[in-house]
Amino acid sequence: MSTAVARRSTLPGFGLTMGLTLTWLSVIILIPLAGLFLKTFELSLDQFWGIISSRRTLNALRISFGLSFAAACVNLVMGTIIVWALVRYRFPGRRLFDAIVDIPFALPTAVAGVALTQLFAQKGWLGAPLAELGIKVAFTPIGIFIAMIFIGIPFVVRTVQPVLIDLDPEIEEAAASLGANRWHTVFRVILPSLIPALLTGFALAFARAIGEYGSVIFIAGNLPNVSEIAPLLIVIRLSEFRYADATAIAVVMLVASFLIIFLINRLQRWAQTRIPAH
């Protein structure tokens, strides 16, 4: 916590380290990102709108945002169940499953992509039984959805886990001793205090899925207007040397991610004011 009156530090190196930090940040992050926006300003508003409102772009954005939202919803529900099991219960292999949650985070996306495709392909371990039920996963939008669930799961679990661990046991004991049944205690007392963490985890998973490329493109099928995600369309436009198109789509996605970061920051501030530190 910084106090209102800035504390004078007697440590050396502020000017030097701050200067180097800002320089490095500018060279690697800020100037390249600014270049993206500058490139967009070379387009007239009509051109920009023409690119964004073309059927293929709109469909790619709809697929990316829609499926990411659906996947983040699944992650929210399953993430809560996983956190609950990991934090509240003892069962054989609990520590192992706790570590396993991080795999989507650590596994390179291309590896996840080929593995999921192989798993859900028509002759794959899961694809074959699903095909018998008449469900085709690989090379359809369902495949995209599955890949997005895979990459999003650690976000919800790891955001909610520390909050559930730190939850004061006395609150639920009080609720229970005041006569609330377990159902009421969970849904009226515990879950409400997890809401900021749940929403943050949801937003992180959503943002990650929107931008995800490697783990999605193998299983997606990549059919324009059907199973083509926005990041892939950027890559396709680049390979066609249609830089303006690529840039316009990128700007839309970037603005969306910035809005999500802003939202996450607000959520975290809200969480801090809601739950007093102990």
Partner: peptide
């Protein structure tokens, strides 16, 4: 400043590549 340092986490990998194509392509 911390938010700026965190930016790359919320930029799609494809866009992270694209910005350098726009600079050096």
């Amino acid at each position: 400043l911390i938010t700026l340092i965190d930016l790359p986490f919320s930029v799609s990998p494809v866009i992270s590549g694209l910005v350098f194509v726009l600079l050096f392509g």
